[in-house]
């Protein structure tokens, strides 16, 4: 179950990353559609945070709880930070910031799965 959630999120985050990369290459600023796509990912990450905390409380595996929760919290902060930093730049590079942010979200989701399965950072 956890594998599916983590991989779905990791791949889902690549979609706005790819969309943003396409827009950046074509020289576009951040668009409304991109904002909505990033918002959808943000909601999914918030659900992951809540779900992850519940799973941590219920599990009897040896998971490094502090590291696990700090990754869950960090990944939630990345999209708003990327959006705020990126939107101030009215050029393709503002969109480029969202590419970086979404790729980071994807990598962090895979790391969260590593922490969950291996029990260490």
């Amino acid at each position: 179950m956890t594998h599916e959630v983590a991989y779905t999120l990791a791949i889902a985050a690549l979609l706005p990353a790819a969309g943003a990369a396409w827009l950046a290459v074509r020289g576009h600023q951040v668009t409304d559609a991109l904002f909505y796509a990033v918002s959808v990912i943000e909601v999914a990450l918030l659900v992951q945070l809540v779900g992850g905390c519940i799973a941590l409380a219920r599990t009897d595996r040896d998971v490094d709880g502090v590291t696990f929760v700090s990754y869950l919290v960090t990944v939630v902060l990345v999209p708003p930070a990327a959006f705020l930093w990126g939107v101030a730049e009215k050029s393709r590079w503002g969109t480029g910031v969202l590419v970086v942010g979404m790729l980071t979200v994807s990598v962090l989701c895979v790391r969260i799965l590593d922490i969950w399965t291996s029990g260490h950072a």
Partner: peptide, 13 residues
């Protein structure tokens, strides 16, 4: 500014 915006984002990460 410009490309620097992306560079700062990567450095921040």
């Amino acid at each position: 500014r410009g490309f620097g915006r992306v560079l700062v984002a990567v450095y921040a990460i």
